[in-house]
Design a protein around this nucleic acid. Sequence first.
DNA 1: CCATTACGCTACGACTCGTAGCGAAAGCTC
DNA 2: GAGCTTTCGCTACGAGTCGTAGCGTAATGG
Lengths: 205, 205
Amino acid sequence: MQSSTSTARPGRPRSAAAATAILAATREALVEVGWSKLTLGDVATRAGVAKTTLYRRWSGKNELVVDAVAELFDELELPDRGSLAADIEGVVLQFVAILARPEAKSGLMAVVAESTRDDALRERIRRSIVDRQKRLVLQGRSRAQKRGELPPETDPEEAARTADLIFDVVAGAVVHRTLVSAEPADEEWVRSFTRVLLLGLTGDS
Amino acid sequence: MQSSTSTARPGRPRSAAAATAILAATREALVEVGWSKLTLGDVATRAGVAKTTLYRRWSGKNELVVDAVAELFDELELPDRGSLAADIEGVVLQFVAILARPEAKSGLMAVVAESTRDDALRERIRRSIVDRQKRLVLQGRSRAQKRGELPPETDPEEAARTADLIFDVVAGAVVHRTLVSAEPADEEWVRSFTRVLLLGLTGDS
DNA sequence: CCATTACGCTACGACTCGTAGCGAAAGCTC
DNA sequence: GAGCTTTCGCTACGAGTCGTAGCGTAATGG
């Protein structure tokens, strides 16, 4: 019996422009001052809104940064490059490019760190970042199966577990290389990584 | 002409017991309140020392947490389990166990996040955590080569690059599984991961 | 036109920060 | 032991941030 999907709330609607400005200002502040010194008051000033507006929409710094960072990862896509190896290399290079941006580096790792003590935050990260990008793994696998590069999966549950594993290996390796080892994930590194991922340590062509 | 290695400073020496108590108190605080709400005043109280003592020894929260967390990783070792696969599974399980501890989770990720904007901090992390554990990769490879499981390396530079790659893949995958995906890295997962690492995605036995 | 909600602004107590200054303690050298 | 040096515990401080409350105004829908 509802007219539409809860969009029909009375009163003045929230400004969409404000949301855009706030998230952009958050990323700007992440670049300039980093996560630990980022204050909501500063973000509000940069965005040209009142501090109270910020608190009305987000419960705290963590939630705000998650939303600001999540937008960065939505540009990932998986163009068909003809082979599984080329597909992997392509998407990994995109991921590397995103992680090279300072707002992604400091923001992402910080909220992940905070999420170890905050279940709601972890769930927010999972929904808005992690699960959204797992599609790339599924897409790549299905393409490789059509090409005959990978065998079709038999057990669907096993297939889901493998997809999760691949996602952790790929994303984890890139993040670790970029942030912890802090060395460039250039094309050469991506090629080596892809080779190991496809052939393993023992399988040298 | 120095009596010993710069240990011969005049004046009252710094209490070694205080350092131990401070680092332990830091880990305790990481468990109870997490990184963002951890205050140096609280740590000082827990350790039973004055806040000023803390500031005399560490320049800030980041440096303190790095030292407190670094001690956790020193217990990693690589017992000879007879095969490369078994060796990898063993050390990965140890790593998983350490990362399961809340003080390791929140502390490590937080300082890594901060290090994206602080070169000195990144170098401190590298020296006290990352490089210290790369020995495990080198040790495992050399053992596998003696067993004939891996070919001897030809180019030493290429060998170093590969070792770095392996380290990023292993550590990154475990960290991502544990912290970002936030799902258990149990024995079954470790077995699957080891299989992919050794045989690759294509190589199914 | 009226109810309802969002907005901008100001002000507030509570808290943490990092530092300074002090007297006392604990080592070394002579 | 005397004297020097450095650390330690304690107290106090201004500066800055936190998250919230209160108010008048702006923008929607019925």
